[in-house]
Design a protein around this nucleic acid. Sequence first.
DNA 1: TCTGGGGTCCTGAACCAT
DNA 2: TCTGATGGTTCAGGACCC
Length: 564
Amino acid sequence: MRSAPTILHLDMDAFYASVEQASKPSLRGKAVIVGGLGPRGVVATASYEARRFGVHSAMPMAQARRLCPNGACLIPRFSLYREVSDTVMGMLRELSPLVEPLSLDEAFVDLEAGGVAFDAEAARAVGERLRADITAVTGLSGSVGLAGSKMLAKVASEEAKPAGLLLIEVGTERAHLAPMSVRTLPGVGPATGEHLRRAGITTVGELAEAGEDELVRMVGRSHGVGLYRMALGVDERPVVAERDAKSVSVEDTFDVDLHDRVRIRTEVQRLADRCVERLRGSGHSGRTIVLKVRRYDFSTLTRSETLRGPTDDPAVVREAAARLLEAVDTTGGVRLLGVGVTGLADYTQEDLFAFADAMAARAGADGDAGPAAGEGADRTDGVAPSGGGAVDADRGQESHAPGEGAGQGPGPGRDEGTGQGRGARQGRGEAPGDGQVEAAGQGLGAGEGRVEAAGLDAGEPLAAREGRAQGQESGQVGGPGRSGGVEGLGERSWPAGSDVRHAVYGPGWVQGSGVGRVTVRFEQPGSEPGRVRTFLVDDPELEPSDPMPLVGDQAVGVGGSTAP
DNA sequence: TCTGGGGTCCTGAACCAT
DNA sequence: TCTGATGGTTCAGGACCC
């Protein structure tokens, strides 16, 4: 425990929702709910205005809509959030080399290591200045906690919310924590909290009084010792600037449970490919393949298989995932599938040897052709010859009995409803002002506040939608015309909240769409709330665009292309 | 009309090697 | 050679976090 409160924890307030409000003036001061919009979507973040209605993160979106019927419901735009986050993290790194990001909107900073604060007074000044700078550059507010340890700094920032700063003086930790709920402590969730409550322990003070032995008996060695130390306010964990990823995974929840075994297999293959894409993107290979299945009754099971060597070969991961799936009973239906890779290795090191060998073999004659992506894939195969090869050899005949797919579940065609449902849902959620091409917007009045992803594929997994919004190939099962942005194959898709530009009216964002129309609000960060107009979805003068900078010329992220 | 997605860490059982 | 203790690895699941 250090002698001064020089560990800073920054937590941006209602981050996703705040970014949306900053980029859409008509939403400022209004209830904004960011999350999945499908029938199984949940809330990622709600603005403070929405929280007053009882909306909170992890709540089913349907419930959030009932509680807050006039709230603007938007899909997350992670690319924009990431860019704003990068800007904020950059500001933190100006304070210290020791910055530990926890997520897009949270980080620890070791102020002492940066030489910017060695006592409480200086730390407070740094924190206040940081908050002001973040607001000036991004237009967003963040809360700051300062303490002598990470745990207390995080507790402090939580107490400081929203838009505040709290410093916990060294030496007062235990007294500060004592009256607080045990749920305040990191690592105490619903299960542990309930466990402790049944033992008559509800506050941190009671936790400290219980003693280490008692806590170890109740929740196990590791957790018990950790809990006891936290209850005393003791936390010696250093701020760590770089952390290696331990696993990479992708998962999708389906709007309608899957029954068809063939379809389930197809989805697993697709997930395996996406997982490998991410794996390669991070410069890793992995040794253990994990399949995750959540069944119709929400019971979740995982199956894993460890290869003899690390791989980033999509075929190897696909086959391993398929083998694991064969051991899982999916009768009754599957609501979620996931594929992950753990036991990560930094294959680029071995890759260097392979690359050096290849270059030596070429004798430098035509050495100007750098290693292309395809070559990288081939080289990687060479890294794990025993793993990939052995598994393939073991695989044997994958001879599923003919008609197995039909024999499973209620019968063929059952899951076709997914695709049909999507079409049906597209017509739902009529955009406000639909039919009135050229509807004059007069600001968000009562009853007009609802913003909805009418034009979205509500039936497909959120991740796929987001991926497609970023211009990636969807790879989804489904017919032509479903993939947004493919001109000439069908209607263009206009996700609610996405940025657009009109040849005549300029920049704006999609407020909703449906039945061949898209409603756009023409405004931008820094402008007054704008007017609403409705167009045909294939209006040639309307195009998707990059997000606008949140504040003036400060070009927060935004791909740099649309400075006003 | 329930309960996302992407992670980390821990525990306990089973198995194997020493 | 057998047996028990011990420790490492793998696997599955649970809890938690943002």
